[in-house]
Amino acid sequence: MDNKENVLWDGGERVLWREQSSAAAGHNVLFARLAAEQPMPASLDRLAHELALKDELDSAWAVRPLRLVRENGQVSLAFEDPGGEPLARLLGTPLEIGYFLELAIGIAAALGKLHQRGLVHKDLKPAHILVHCADGQPRLTGFGLASRLPRERQAPEAPETIAGTLAYMAPEQTGRMNRSIDSRSDLYALGVTFYQMLTGVLPFSATDAMEWVHCHIARTPLPPSARVEAVPAVISRIVMKLLAKTAEERYQTAAGVEHDLRRCLADWQRQRHIDDFTLDEHGTPDRLMIPEKLYGREREVETLVSTFTRIVETGVPELVLVSGYSGIGKSSVVNELHKILVPPRGLFASGKFDQYKRDI
């Protein structure tokens, strides 16, 4: 890189930098370059996919891709430059509440615009959010995994191979919740991002991929207000609602999040205090969202779960048969085991998780 290049973020897989133009050359341009000399085909596919979305992305809320650039054996994706810097560069210590609310409102609004276009980001995180842009509005980027499907399933895979960023990944994206990925999966990642903005740390810490999966599907994080006393209780509740394990218990839309944050900011600016109120009263989805909860099969599911837990704890094999007419829902019952297979739920409470990881 020469002295006209300014690295904004090095994420390991790819590097984001701003190439500063001379007065004669015109506007600055952002580039995302794959760091590996011989990148994996999947990494190249993500750049191409992001470029293919350019006509569906609005420069008012997204960093729009322009073209692929191949130079000196390396592949980069060029973007319009709205100015600003990745949110990730601001994190590490708790943000002041008023400042947090101003940033969070803009981020929620941008995410809402993305969802209105029928897109699900699937990799929302601070490194993929530009703040302090020239017009003061945040921009989203990092659309290499974005989906045009309103709902899709993640197949159970080894945690190390799941596409996305595990620290910000919704439980259903791990493939172990028997639940579909939709726009509310992005809201979980938004909750992780807000948690980090408010506290300076992630809601969970883990040492490997499997432990990240365990955290998202089984552990409840300490509320932000319990970590940082200055965080108002209402804002803490907003974040914890975003971090709900099932999508039905989260905010249903980014617009609902934005509305509640704006109410918080109005109270904060007026009285340096936020009055309590009912969350997500204005979060009615703009499309039909059919709940994926399994009803009327609690006894059968509990039999499978208790049997599986007993096998893991005793080491004695057992055979369980699930029978019934075709179409009665046998697969749905069995699929409820996904959320506890890695690692078994029985080990969560017993404190044997670390031993389980060593054994496998």
Rank of each mutant, 00 (worst) to 15 (best):
Y195L: 08
L198I: 14
T199Q: 05
F204T: 06
F204G: 05
E211R: 15
V213I: 09
R219Y: 02
T220N: 09
P221L: 09
P221K: 08
P221E: 09
P221T: 09
L222T: 15
L222N: 13
L222R: 15
E229V: 08
V231N: 04
P232E: 07
I235M: 11
S236M: 09
S236V: 08
A244D: 07
K245M: 08
A247H: 03
A247Y: 01
E248T: 11
E249Y: 09
R250L: 11
Y251T: 01
A255K: 05
G256P: 02
H259I: 03
D260S: 13
R262P: 01
Q269G: 03
R272E: 12
H273G: 02
D275C: 02
D280F: 09
T284M: 14
T284S: 09
P285Y: 04
D286W: 10
L288I: 14
M289A: 11
I290W: 08
Y295E: 15
R297I: 02
T303A: 08
T307W: 06
F308G: 15
T309N: 14
T309L: 01
T309V: 03
R310C: 07
V312W: 12
E313H: 12
T314W: 02
P317K: 02
L321R: 11
S323Q: 13
S323D: 08
G324A: 08
G329R: 01
